[in-house]
């Protein structure tokens, strides 16, 4: 506390005792919590995996999956993590043009991923995989659907941050705010890597 002035403004709080800003800490905690959410969904998927075959209740994963298409969408999502890192680096340097560029590109790559998922859902549905049909349908749509919802919310969030840079609120586009959006974005990416491995790739193992 400065004692040089006759009146001082005491800001809300002293510096964080834990060394991490409140917002970032709260977001790490949110991600821990979200891990448990996806953990439960993935565990549900795995515990029901292969059960439809016992009941003779198709279609089964390999009747539907196209590993090429999903690999492309996975690559797209992974690239969006790269652009996200570049956006954080740009705001750190105070380069607003590059911040906008990389944020916009990240949102675009995210939207493309959601588009791939929309295509995949439509395709699977037409091939006969219904939410109500068999366990694979129920678990697949709910697990990947929740992930897709996370990506969609992430895209909306990134677009909001991007829009803020053009308004009078552009002071809010701070390093911390972009970094926190980035934390969420990377998390959603990592979850997809787990889902891609366990749901898609595992079907191709002997």
């Amino acid at each position: 506390m400065s004692s040089d002035h006759s009146a001082v403004s005491v800001h809300e709080h002293p510096p964080p005792s834990f060394g991490v800003p409140n917002l970032k800490l709260a977001f790490w905690l949110f991600l821990a919590s979200d891990c448990m959410l996806f953990g439960s969904l993935i565990a549900t998927y795995l515990s029901y995996r292969g059960k439809d075959q016992l009941f003779g209740n198709g279609p089964y994963p390999l009747d539907l999956f196209s590993v090429e298409v999903t690999t492309i969408s996975t690559f797209d999502l992974l690239m969006s993590s790269v652009t996200m890192v570049l956006a954080v680096a740009a705001i750190q340097r105070g380069n607003m043009f590059q911040t906008r560029l990389w944020l916009g590109l990240t949102a675009l790559l995210g939207a493309i991923f959601v588009g791939f998922q929309g295509y995949e859902f439509t395709h699977f549905y037409l091939e006969g995989l219904k939410l109500q049909g068999n366990l694979f349908g129920s678990t697949f749509y709910v697990l990947t659907g929740f992930h897709g919802t996370h990506v969609t919310l992430g895209v909306v969030w990134l677009l909001l941050v991007l829009a803020t840079t053009f308004t009078k609120h552009r002071g809010m586009v701070t390093h911390l705010n972009v970094e926190v959006a980035g934390l969420y974005w990377h998390f959603v990416d990592i979850v997809w890597i787990v889902i891609f491995t366990l749901v898609y790739l595992m079907e191709y193992t002997v």
């Binding site: 709080h13 002293p14 964080p16 005792s17 834990f18 409140n22 800490l25 709260a26 905690l29």
Partner: peptide, 15 residues
């Protein structure tokens, strides 16, 4: 409330 209180307790303790 959980995120809020953990952040509060870890970060906002008096000197």
């Amino acid at each position: 409330a959980g995120f809020n209180f953990i952040a509060t307790i870890l970060n906002m303790r008096a000197p």
